[in-house]
Amino acid sequence: MMNKHFFAIFLGLAYSSLFVVGFIVNSAALWAFIAQRASWTDTHIYMFNLVIADSAFILFLPLRAYDAFFCLPKTTFCTFLLYIHFINMYASIMTTTAISVHRYLVIRFPLQARSWRKKKEAAFAVCLVIWILLVTVCVMFRKENYPDKLWTCYERCKDRPLKPLVMGIMVSLGFTTPLVVIVFCSSQIICILSKVDNISEEKKSIVDMVTANMVVFIVCYTPINVGFLVNYFNVLPLNWQFEQIPEHIYLRIAEWIAATNCCFDSISYYFLLKQFYS
């Protein structure tokens, strides 16, 4: 069994490295988007919202690393950190879903997309609704992560699982539905563009970007949601050493894998900004 002190150091270093890389990547993306704000399209608005979600997530990663090394005390500040963590993670998921739907509609119905005059306003409204929805859900279920339900600052007690409604929202609405939408939209986009004769370099870039985004989404967010379900249904006896069981280790690693998405989103930024600066 993995030594818990070694595993804590490993997690601390992993989150520290992720913070450094994520901070550099997202700072560069944020600067690039702001620099070309006069030429923003509806796609830029969605992408900027993704940058904001990822950047806010990254800013709190040093505390996650510190907790791995030294263990933060269980206070209401931990509740705040947990909700910041999940709000920004699900903001990223929902924004990625909105971007996938937007790309599909533009490619599937190009004439109608060109005639729509309020695309920027619609994009801004979608992003605003995403944030309002997530904050509302967190306020409604704020007691679910109060200090008395926490085992450590970032972890719940094993014998105090989330309510079925909360788990259902997280796994079905927070992951499964976005996954189905993203896979459908991405597959349709790839299929439509692949059938085009003499496909241009721009369209090849779109296919590459869509494929990469879909793969990254599946790889980053599938493990943690599997971990949520396993952790929820497999309640072990209280006399087990919770911090040393494989299930616990898997969930901690899966959370880090999900966090790496804040760096992989740069794939979308690269393709979009490349078109602008080329």
Rank of each mutant, 00 (worst) to 15 (best):
2 M>K: 05
4 K>R: 11
6 F>S: 07
10 F>C: 06
18 L>G: 02
20 V>T: 09
21 V>L: 12
25 V>W: 10
28 A>L: 14
34 I>K: 00
37 R>L: 00
40 W>I: 01
41 T>E: 15
42 D>P: 05
44 H>F: 13
47 M>V: 09
49 N>I: 01
51 V>F: 01
55 S>D: 01
57 F>Q: 04
57 F>Y: 11
58 I>A: 02
72 L>G: 04
79 T>L: 02
81 L>N: 05
84 I>E: 03
84 I>D: 07
94 M>S: 11
97 T>F: 05
98 A>R: 13
104 Y>F: 12
104 Y>T: 09
111 L>W: 06
114 R>W: 03
115 S>F: 10
115 S>H: 08
115 S>Y: 08
125 A>F: 08
127 C>V: 15
134 L>R: 04
135 V>Q: 01
138 C>K: 06
139 V>L: 14
141 F>G: 02
141 F>H: 08
144 E>S: 08
148 D>N: 08
153 C>L: 00
157 C>L: 10
161 P>T: 06
167 M>F: 10
168 G>D: 14
169 I>C: 06
170 M>D: 13
171 V>F: 12
171 V>R: 08
176 T>S: 07
176 T>V: 08
177 T>C: 12
181 V>T: 14
182 I>S: 03
182 I>T: 04
186 S>W: 07
189 I>G: 10
189 I>F: 10
190 I>A: 10
197 D>I: 09
200 S>D: 06
201 E>D: 13
202 E>C: 09
204 K>P: 10
205 S>M: 12
208 D>R: 13
209 M>Q: 13
216 V>K: 06
230 V>E: 03
235 V>N: 11
236 L>P: 07
243 E>T: 10
246 P>N: 12
249 I>N: 00
250 Y>V: 03
254 A>F: 00
258 A>C: 06
261 N>P: 04
267 I>K: 10
268 S>T: 15
269 Y>L: 11
269 Y>D: 15
271 F>N: 12
277 Y>C: 14
278 S>K: 15
